[in-house]
Design a binder for these strands. Structure first.
Lengths: 294, 294
DNA sequence: ACTTACGATAAGCAACGCTGATGGACCCGC
DNA sequence: GCGGGTCCATCAGCGTTGCTTATCGTAAGT
């Protein structure tokens, strides 16, 4: 169970090809073959069926373990190295698209006002990658957004010992086209929308949506981008509904396109932003954490 | 960050000696020295201060990561091997001392009545080791007990993907000596007992106790064993109080010794038993899980 | 100051793990 | 049906790694 062999194995499984994995990892095909054989010999069972190359049941099981395991390994390495790193004046921030709401942006500004030398690089990524980025030290601080019950923590992938702090919670609204039968309502229940068509977009992860409104919502339009205005335009045009934090939808029904934001009354849900970071190394980061935590 | 080197490192740190670690691992002292040097070279920083041998700050950080990392590695290995293992008629059960309460014992009996060929080996261990035992496949099922808020899960060490199910919840009582001023009460609040002397015993883990009644409880008697009657006898003799599930204290004030069980009214706490298991391999285990889950 | 204990270092050697070449199985087009 | 191409397995060759044995340097105890 050498991590080296494990990496090779997941790469082979991902590509479905020994040769392709060899090319990616910079080995010869022969080496890859031997490494996989070594791993199989070590465990005493076949992990891959050949031609076509696909994991056996045992292999599939191992794949489930391997990815988080390798992540934790990289995270541990990064964490140890962090203890020896000198303080940086550059803070690398990673955030999911909806995490930088007005409150967060304002608090960031306050922190920068207090520390003029502080430089910030903000990078966007999906929620699944965020924890990994922070754990591996490729970002110093992470801002994740998601939908949860009030004062419940978000369910982020576990990538080792990390601190998470709630930053903001705000109302969750459904973005409806102006002409929608429910558009005028003061609030609505998700249960009223079981049959509705939903936008599939990373702004509101389909997996979470499925948890909330049930399995069989009809396939609508899929938007793979991050832009809220695009999503709102799509919603306004009737391509599907979407859940957003109240602050993301312009007030007053929105000028041209016309979407209407109706708060979700039941189940009781909020849009939550959380700050996550590993052991705080430098002084500047600690101050920023304090500022963001409010 | 080879796990091999990691193992060596934690062994050296545990023994505080290269030679002792070499003896335990079956290497020469020279090999150990080279392995530690290799790990330090890989990370580019010193992990151990020599003579006396003790971890540097970075080394301490790595130690925190290494143990759970190695555990997960063993767990992954065990889990993969389990997929290929043939069903056993012997089920290895691991439990913390207070986990096998009357309800659990009864449900175990029901399951055995349904499956006469089922053989069970029950082994006791501390809560900290339980998750590791199950994850590594050295036990098929684990029964953990602990104190939690009603319907809150226990906080068990994370050892990879495992299923945990609540089994029972029952009232939590304080075992008081019969002559104690609060002994007659129908219920009490933990806050009333901040100044009390508590037994330190694995039956009620001191760490948890500290969370509940605060830091500075005076050092009383420490009982390292598992036996409830011994603990009750100690409590009756005034060596200190202890928290137990109601079913562990004989009703009616207890004949000879005389302990009095007073339920804890605030904070709202229960004694909870949880069942934990990895991917369910054989048919017999699945049935037992169903039986225990009630 | 001598002794002892312990970790670091050097030299030697076996084993591991890579490359490059070759072989066998399967797929595809003709 | 046949030949070429693709892909993985296997083999031989070889450099590197990582162990052992032996020796040295050094700190602590007497």
């Amino acid at each position: 169970m050498d991590p080296h062999l494990l990496t090779t194995f997941v790469t082979v499984a991902r590509h479905g090809s020994f040769s392709a994995a060899a090319a990616e990892l910079g080995y010869t095909q022969s080496a890859i073959s031997q490494q996989v054989a070594a791993l199989e010999a070590d465990l005493g069972l076949a992990l891959l069926r050949r031609r076509p190359v696909e994991p056996t049941p045992a292999g599939r099981r191992l794949l489930e373990h391997a990815e988080p395991l390798l992540l934790r390994l990289r995270a541990a390495r990064a964490d140890v190295l962090r203890t020896a790193a000198e303080p940086r004046h550059l803070l690398r921030l990673a955030a999911t698209p909806l995490a930088v709401n007005p409150v967060v942006a304002a608090r960031l500004a306050e922190a920068r006002a207090r520390q003029p030398r502080l430089e910030i690089r903000l990078r966007m990524c999906r929620a699944e990658r965020l924890a990994a980025l922070v754990a591996e030290g490729r970002a110093d601080l992470g801002l994740a957004d998601g939908i949860a019950a009030p004062s419940d923590p978000l369910r982020l992938p576990d990538a080792g010992p990390m601190t998470t702090t709630g930053v903001t919670e705000e109302d969750l609204v459904v973005a409806l086209p102006a002409g929608h039968p429910l558009a005028g309502r003061a609030s609505l229940r998700l249960a009223d929308l079981i049959d509705a068509r939903w936008l599939r977009t990373p702004l509101c992860p389909p997996a979470r949506l499925r948890d909330l409104v049930g399995e069989g919502f009809p396939a609508g339009l899929e938007y793979e981008g991050d832009d809220v205005r695009t999503a709102l335009n799509l919603a306004a045009a009737g391509h599907g509904l979407t859940l957003l934090p109240a602050s993301a939808v312009p007030a007053g029904g929105g000028g041209g396109g016309g979407v209407c934001a109706v708060p979700v009354a039941a189940p009781r849900l909020v849009h939550r932003v959380e700050l996550l970071h590993a052991a705080l190394p430098p002084g500047a980061a600690a101050d920023l954490v304090a500022a963001l935590s409010g």
